[in-house]
Design a protein around this nucleic acid. Structure first.
Lengths: 350, 350
DNA sequence: CATGGCAATGATAGCGCTACCATTTGGTCA
DNA sequence: TGACCAAATGGTAGCGCTATCATTGCCATG
């Protein structure tokens, strides 16, 4: 609070913000009527409403949603915790979520875990302190601490939605796809095309690992040698994939692989670049499949075969789940599990 | 509020959230002592603090920051309004901002304008209703309405920072670069390389336009023919650039240009793809320069000459400006103007 | 031994809004 | 005509926290 004005005329206070009360006085009504005129205009007589609207406009009144949230125990806020925003792969999900929620008057609070456990917990605490009505996670929490916080929040009525995966033991609702099945599908395609020396390039987060396990699983089932796995640091960067390709030239080398599944299109693009620079032909010498169907997959040369994930729809679905579940007594709400599937988009690279 | 429990045992309430008071009772102290233990631990005796910490842990207490914000008139929240998050070009700015603010206990509220005036105003109203301590704009507001809202917010003590530009008439602080100078630099380079038929491809937002004007200005100064300008819809998409390249084959055609400046790397990449598919050699037949220095610029083949903008640093600088200015009496705060500059990264494409 | 100062804690009054009751009209219907 | 209802409006008590101003006890100081 600013008491400076009582103390010294040398330190003026910023003009205190206009409140509902100011509008009410201006319009000659009570605060509650102004509140109603703003939130449920139909319940206020037209002339009264007009007077109030005039007062609002002339004062430039912007309702304090923080106060409203406290009073109503509805923050109209949804938190989203992503590993990182710089990786454009989650951008579409954020986009879909934002688009679906902002028209309902919700705001998005964004936090990043940076793929780090400690940061995830801290970010989650910050998020939950804002009392969001929903929390959208990309993936499942990395730590038990985070899981417990989410479960507690859910017990208090917060909607929890995990995305980009279909975890065995979800916290609340889930909207994602089967990362293991993705790996299966890619391995099956490589095998059908007659590739022998498979490799997988990606991070070591749960989702990338699931893709690898599915990949290795199907490779084994089809009698292939175990795929080489190259682990790259998170978040996915082309530079890491390029470095990995350029690195070793021993038996563990990527350049010996004749088919590479990259856990993200970003990695795939790095590998494509490195392979071409090495004079390898893609897909003749090395077939390449990515994941995400980023725009560049369509326009690279050769264009990139990739697993399309509908990130925007995932965000929209998460938003719908939250809007449905919010304010509903917990006893008649059952968490949902939505499998959005994936699609192997076959282009030139494999 | 949930009164259902008084009414009917069939509609149980979600367990009401734990409050400071619950922790206080558990620890045998007053609420204010708990508040202090959490915010300024040094002011609480070690044993008391230990008891409080134990109570917090056993209750799983998460402070309600909404209530705290209302009481203290400090929301510890910063709003960021971007044209879109799907365009990865602003992702690094969001990243830099987030990284710099989250360690200070701030949360980020994200809103998108989608390059639409009406949506910008709506998003801004939603943002300002949350009473953020700072607002980071990508670019300047598109409408006067938005500008007025921002000015009013600033008068109430909100820090306003415009980024990605250096507007003539900034609202508050600015951290960006000179888009016109970027255009000048690219035109100068094209001219020096002996290119004759220049073209510019980009959106029609203020920043892209400034780049074009700088480009045309220098072209004229160096005696070149006025560059062709191809306007693409926002947000920038490779597909639009590809379509533009493939479109007309008349005198207004991009394929006649021997040097193209694309307002973003995304456009540049689309043009690169289209040109190569048409059998044009880059840079021999068509030189190409982008903007943003996205990672793919480094790894495309040919690699992309581009104007590097340090988006992350822009975000960090915006965060610093906000943290500095916040809570400072307005009379001793002077808006700052920070030019982060740009760098022409010469690679293979031009 | 009174005095002052500091460290530790507490009581209280809001922050700006909304939920939950009133209360006041004017009209409808038995 | 009086009971009844719906439409329009108002009064008031918080939401969970923090800012401000006590209050308490303890020690050092002259």
């Amino acid at each position: 609070m600013c008491y400076a004005e009582w103390v010294s005329s040398y330190t003026p206070c910023p003009p205190s913000q206009t409140r509902l009360l100011d509008v009410a006085e201006r319009a000659g009504v009570s605060v509650i009527t102004v509140s109603r005129a703003l939130r449920t205009p139909a319940k206020v007589a037209p002339e009264t409403r007009a007077r109030i609207e005039a007062a609002v406009a002339s004062l430039g009144y912007v309702p304090n949603l923080v106060a409203g949230a406290l009073a109503s125990a509805r923050t109209r806020t949804v938190g989203i915790l992503v590993p990182t925003v710089s990786s454009s792969i989650f951008a579409t999900t954020i986009n879909g979520l934002t688009d679906a929620l902002e028209s309902e008057g919700y705001s998005i609070v964004l936090a990043q875990s940076g793929y780090e456990a400690a940061r995830e917990v801290a970010a989650l605490a910050a998020l939950l302190g804002r009392r969001p009505e929903g929390i959208v996670m990309v993936g499942s929490p990395m730590t038990d601490a985070a899981r417990i916080m989410l479960e507690a929040a859910q017990d208090r009525g917060t909607m929890v939605v995990e995305t980009w995966d279909l975890p065995e033991r979800p916290i609340g609702s889930v909207v994602g796809f089967d990362n293991r099945a993705v790996g299966n599908a890619v391995a099956a395609r490589f095998a059908a095309a007659g590739h022998q020396r498979l490799a997988f390039v990606g991070g070591d987060d749960d989702r990338a690992s699931a893709r690898f396990h599915g990949f290795a699983e199907t490779a084994a089932r089809l009698g292939q040698a175990p795929p080489l796995r190259i682990q790259l640091p998170a978040p996915s960067a082309m530079a890491d994939a390029v470095a990995a390709y350029n690195a070793a030239h021993g038996p563990e080398s990527l350049s010996r692989a004749d088919a590479i599944f990259a856990a993200t299109d970003v990695h795939a693009f790095g590998l494509l670049s490195a392979a071409l620079r090495h004079g390898r032909r893609v897909p003749e010498d090395t077939a390449l499949v990515g994941l995400g169907d980023l725009e560049m997959a369509r326009f690279s040369i050769p264009s990139l075969t990739t697993v399309r994930i509908d990130g925007a729809r995932m965000g929209q679905a998460a938003a719908s789940l939250i809007l449905e579940g919010v304010r509903r007594p917990s006893h008649d709400y059952a968490p949902k599990r939505i499998d959005l599937g994936f699609e192997l988009i076959v282009r030139e690279s494999g």
